[in-house]
Amino acid sequence: MLKVSGIDVYYGDMAALSNVGIDVNRGEIVAVVGSNGAGKSTLLKAISGIQRPRTGTIRFNDTEISRTSTSRIVEVGISHVPEGRQLFPTMTVLENLEMGAQFPRARKCLPESLKKVLDYFPRLKERLSQKAGTLSGGEQQMVAMGRGLMSVPALMMLDEPSLGLAPVLVSKIFEIIQRINQQGTAILLIEQNVFHSLKISDRGFVLENGRVALTGTGEELLASPHIRKMYLGL
């Protein structure tokens, strides 16, 4: 459903990604792992149209989207949950969630989407009228993911959802990601938490210095000596 081929992304003269290709099939969880500065977030920004690639193609459901506007990309079904939650701190939780559904298709099914989100994250029910900036880190992550779901995406891209969360919460977030996936949403997951993310993923890509260094199924990658040595310290 998503096919990124041979993209180069530059910040000024510096190449952040060179000749990167990944793909996500319907119903899959795909992880992109790598260390700081490997270009993981840049990849997501390129897909959602925030950072344009210099070369290469990005196809979603067989339509080229590398020059499509960000708002249009959200409308066709790719939602981007950015790194570090990026909520609107003085808006309430409900307002934050509603911000995720601001185009006709999503607005039409806003009540159902909201119900679904509260089903995934029951904790948010009692927080709806609270300002998002007053929530704990874990709750903020829930709002960010919920907001991403409000656009009724076919593909949800998560940038470091476990960043800065307590271990208990990390497991919980990964569990919910799996549940969202079981309901039919494909997931593209960016993580530094290599072990956890490869474990729940169908396939994975390892980014190093802006290039795809390794690819395979989640199990294959977890078993690979390179990954074990470089990322898991085993």
Binding site: P82, P89, M91, M99
Partner: peptide, 18 residues
């Protein structure tokens, strides 16, 4: 609503498709 979203976090608003 969109104006406030831009003020609070322009990049996030953009990422949401605003």
């Amino acid at each position: 609503r969109f104006m406030v979203a831009i003020r609070e976090n322009e990049e996030a608003a953009q990422a949401l498709g605003v």
